[in-house]
Amino acid sequence: DHDVVPEDKFQETLHLKEKEGCPQAFHALLSWLLTQDSTAILDFWRVLFKDYNLERYGRLQPILDSFPKDVDLSQPRKGRKPPAVPKALVPPPRLPTKRKASEEARAAAPAALTPRGTASPGSQLKAKPPKKPESSAEQQRLPLGNGIQTMSASVQRAVAMSSGDVPGARGAVEGILIQQVFESGGSKKCIQVGGEFYTPSKFEDSGSGKNKARSSSGPKPLVRAKGAQGAAPGGGEARLGQQGSVPAPLALPSDPQLHQKNEDECAVCRDGGELICCDGCPRAFHLACLSPPLREIPSGTWRCSSCLQATVQEVQPRAEEPRPQEPPVETPLPPGLRSAGEEVRGPPGEPLAGMDTTLVYKHLPAPPSAAPLPGLDSSALHPLLCVGPEGQQNLAPGARCGVCGDGTDVLRCTHCAAAFHWRCHFPAGTSRPGTGLRCRSCSGDVTPAPVEGVLAPSPARLAPGPAKDDTASHEPALHRDDLESLLSEHTFDGILQWAIQSMARPAAPFPS
């Protein structure tokens, strides 16, 4: 592969990997390779389809078979030569091979799209000592099968071997295949498990690692696999990028399955594409389908809103127990993405979901129960707010008499603000006073009005108090039968009158 990737590009890729991570280095090298001529790309395919690569990765054979028959990708048995050289000459001794072996032994695996480039050397060096003999053996194999790289107009793939297949390693990572398949204008990513390549439709969760975000852009890794992070704060999961590491605690105790298979379609829109997988259930989501939507993949363990709600429900009964003089119970939860139609709101002032922060849900004790107040519409209280300059209440639009249902020339009671006709409430011909108009209920007259088809109010509507207090003497005590009587009149003013009279009014101040 030294004929494909020059030394300066190799060093530039290593520097970019240390600065921005393996995914960015892979993407940059792939983009550079696509700008080369067809001879360089053909050399790339020839390096990929060597015999030892085909033996190690069985899924490469179907890719090789898909090439046109007129494309010669065979390799000479006596060494490598550029395709432009007409004579089959043995190339001179390859010093770059020693360079590659020494550099890969030092860096474990470079971040390139060629056999030198995919593992994360920093994480491997940190986690190597417990498994040094086995990992050293794996390093000797890295130059042979560490990076199976493929690129063409139909298929483009980048393979990364790992030393996680050490025997006896619980939940060992089998390997990473960062794979971009450009077929019919689409893009897919796969993962390699035990020599087999699994596409998103049959993606397997190998051991402790999972394909957290099938994305090839942005600074985030394709698999949430930063070796420096180790395990999740809650004892979460091992990262795919942690090559040759000792077994780590796999999943939280509440995880239903340690080796679950995540779905390959969004649980909201039932469509495929780039998904984020939940650590607590097999569901996966688009970032845009979450509520609120996320802009980037959160670091650490992530769970959907259903799993978060289940966790909150487990903690909430203990938080609601009476604990005198104790601060509110704080339950730190990872930043969760909410699927459509589901929402768990945190306290005000918290950062938005999706940031690399930890939301704190506070379970406050329930407030003391209070008697429910009568629910009145805002339009129902409008007549009470229509007060004239002299303190006389004006008529609201649409006000109707509670007896006849007519809204023409209605009066407004100064005591309960109900609309009424003087002739309907006082049919006996009582003279109307000039000021202080009161309806039949507030004036103490319980004589029913002779209106055909309208039920008369119940005599129990009024329960006047002592006459010594004029204001308190007109406080009506309405009961269920009074409400039914008012409802039978089918008037809004009657219902409003009952609601206003049912509310307690402050006692009249004593004259000074």
Rank of each mutant, 00 (worst) to 15 (best):
G241F: 08
G241K: 13
Q243E: 08
Q243D: 11
V246C: 14
L250M: 14
A251F: 13
D255G: 12
H259T: 12
H259R: 08
H259C: 07
K261H: 05
E265V: 08
C269Y: 04
C269K: 03
E274T: 10
L275W: 00
C278H: 10
G280R: 07
R283D: 14
H286D: 13
C289H: 15
S291Y: 12
P292S: 13
P293A: 06
P293M: 00
R295V: 11
S299M: 01
T301H: 07
S305V: 08
C307H: 15
V315W: 14
V315P: 09
R318F: 12
A319S: 10
E320L: 12
P322F: 10
R323T: 07
P324W: 12
Q325F: 12
E326G: 10
E326Q: 09
T331Y: 11
L333S: 08
G336E: 15
A340W: 00
E342P: 13
V344A: 06
G346I: 13
A353E: 13
D356N: 13
T357K: 11
V360Q: 00
K362S: 05
H363E: 01
P365K: 10
A366I: 07
A366S: 07
P367W: 15
P374C: 13
G375I: 05
L376H: 05
A380Q: 10
P389E: 07
Q392R: 09
L395W: 14
L395E: 08
A399P: 04
V403Q: 08
C404P: 02
C404D: 05
D406W: 13
R412S: 09
C413A: 02
C413F: 04
T414W: 14
T414I: 14
A417L: 13
A417Y: 03
A418P: 02
A418E: 10
A419E: 15
C424R: 01
P427Y: 04
G429P: 05
G436P: 08
L437F: 09
R438G: 06
R440L: 14
C442M: 00
G444L: 03
D445G: 08
D445H: 07
T447K: 09
E452Q: 04
K468L: 07
P476L: 07
A477L: 10
R480E: 00
E484A: 01
L487H: 03
S488N: 09
H490Y: 14
G494F: 01
I495E: 02
A499N: 02
Q501M: 05
Q501Y: 02
M503D: 06
S512P: 05
